[in-house]
Computed example of a mutant assay.
Amino acid sequence: MANISELIELHIKALLKDSPYDYVELQRNELASQFKCVPSQINYVLSTRFTTDNGYVVESRRGGGGYIRIIKIPLDRHDNAAVQIYRLVGNDINQSQAEAIIKRLAEEEFITPREARIFRSAMDRNSLRLELPWRDNLRADLLKAMLAAVFRED
């Protein structure tokens, strides 16, 4: 069974998918009440699952009538998406950052679920049996090579 953070994440993503815009506006307290959790749980989900690395911007307005606006930043299929991701990868990347990028690629259907599993397996620290910082450097090089294969236009 999914934990509360996963349920909240899935709910927000479903709202985003159903929205005619690339954003949704939510009330933190209403969302917490809906999931029978404390508002800080909502904050945790927003700060860990809806980051810019994951393709989101979260805006918050406090006070009466305050809201949380979650904006989905799609990878631009017209400007080179590979370049956007290369910038995220950089010269080194840890496993959780790599998994976030892979998850985003799968969600936006740049890669298949099967390719995502292969990517995650290759990025796993158990597959890359090196000491830091070499492991993170190798992970970045491998991810960029796999991305080049995905985005190559033959």
Rank of each mutant, 00 (worst) to 15 (best):
K13M: 11
V38K: 13
N80E: 02
R135P: 01
T48V: 01
L15M: 15
E109P: 00
A122L: 13
L10I: 12
S19P: 09
D18V: 06
I12V: 09
L31A: 06
W134H: 15
T112V: 08
H78K: 04
D154L: 07
V89P: 04
G64K: 13
K144F: 00
L128D: 07
E153C: 07
G63N: 05
I68R: 03
D18F: 12
F35M: 05
I85T: 07
E131R: 14
R125T: 01
E6N: 09
P74C: 05
L105S: 03
S19E: 08
S33P: 02
R77M: 06
N43K: 04
I101E: 02
I12H: 07
K36G: 00
L88P: 03
R62W: 03
I101L: 10
R120W: 00
I68P: 00
E108L: 00
R117H: 07
E30R: 14
D124A: 06
L10C: 10
A145V: 08
L88Q: 03
H78V: 10
V83Y: 07
R49N: 12
R125W: 05
A2M: 05
F151W: 02
I4W: 01
N126D: 15
I68C: 06
A106C: 15
K144R: 14
P39F: 02
Q27Y: 01
R152P: 00
I118C: 07
D124E: 03
R139F: 08
Y44S: 11
S60P: 01
L143H: 02
L105T: 13
P39A: 02
T52G: 00
A81S: 09
K72V: 03
Q84M: 05
R104D: 04
K144T: 03
A148L: 10
D141K: 02
A116V: 10
A140C: 04
H11G: 06
R61E: 09
R139W: 04
A81T: 14
L142V: 02
F50S: 04
E6M: 08
V150G: 01
A148D: 13
Y21H: 14
V24I: 13
V150C: 03
D22F: 09
T112G: 05
G64F: 04
T52A: 03
Q95H: 08
K17L: 06
